[in-house]
């Protein structure tokens, strides 16, 4: 397993993971912001988890959080916290989609892009995609354990600028 660990926490792997997962969040966040908000609201309602009055606020917060998390992950600003937040979001998405599948709810659109892009993915495909992204976060969390800083991040840059410890 040591070779696996080596590859998984290799600096290039970490960079690629951050760009892919962060990029997906950033792009979908921007797409949601550009699309008619009503469509995203409707997609959230389709999951039948939240009361209607809270949905418009939730939608706006979601868009901003996704953009923030995506940017932080790509640039590596508080990389560990960004990865943890992304993981938490993905778990929420997985629960939302999972319960919709179990309850047999019709999801005409996963709402991932707020209706901006219509990929026509089935709920199962979205579930698998989110699960893969969740697993992809593990190496980042492994690498940033115990105050370690991931390479090629803003975090690293700040660390290097710190005056040397005496």
């Amino acid at each position: 397993m040591r070779w696996f660990n080596k590859i998984a926490t290799h600096q290039l792997t970490l960079l690629v993971i951050r760009i892919i997962v962060g990029g997906v969040f950033l792009l979908y966040g921007v797409a949601k912001a550009l699309a008619p908000l009503d469509q995203f609201n409707q997609s959230i309602l389709d999951y039948q988890l939240l009361p209607e009055f809270i949905v418009p606020t939730f939608a706006v917060v979601m868009v901003i959080v996704e953009i923030a998390v995506g940017l932080s992950l790509i640039l590596g600003i508080y990389t560990r916290y960004a990865a943890l937040a992304t993981g938490a979001l993905l778990i929420v998405f997985l629960i939302a989609i999972g319960q919709a599948m179990l309850r047999g709810l019709a999801l005409p659109d996963c709402g991932c892009s707020g209706g901006f892009i219509k990929l026509g993915e089935t709920p199962v495909e979205v579930f698998v995609r989110d699960a893969i992204m969740l697993v992809m976060l593990v190496p980042i969390l492994l690498k940033t354990r115990a105050g370690q800083v991931a390479p090629w991040t803003v975090d690293k840059w700040f660390e290097l600028r710190r005056p040397p410890k005496v």
Binding site: V30, A33, L34, I64, I67, A68, L71, F158
Partner: peptide, 19 residues
């Protein structure tokens, strides 16, 4: 402060551009 400011600043810029 710098890091959080950076993150907030970037989010504001992106949201601003989108808006």
């Amino acid at each position: 402060f710098k890091k959080i400011g950076m993150a907030i600043g970037l989010v504001v810029i992106v949201v601003g551009i989108v808006w």
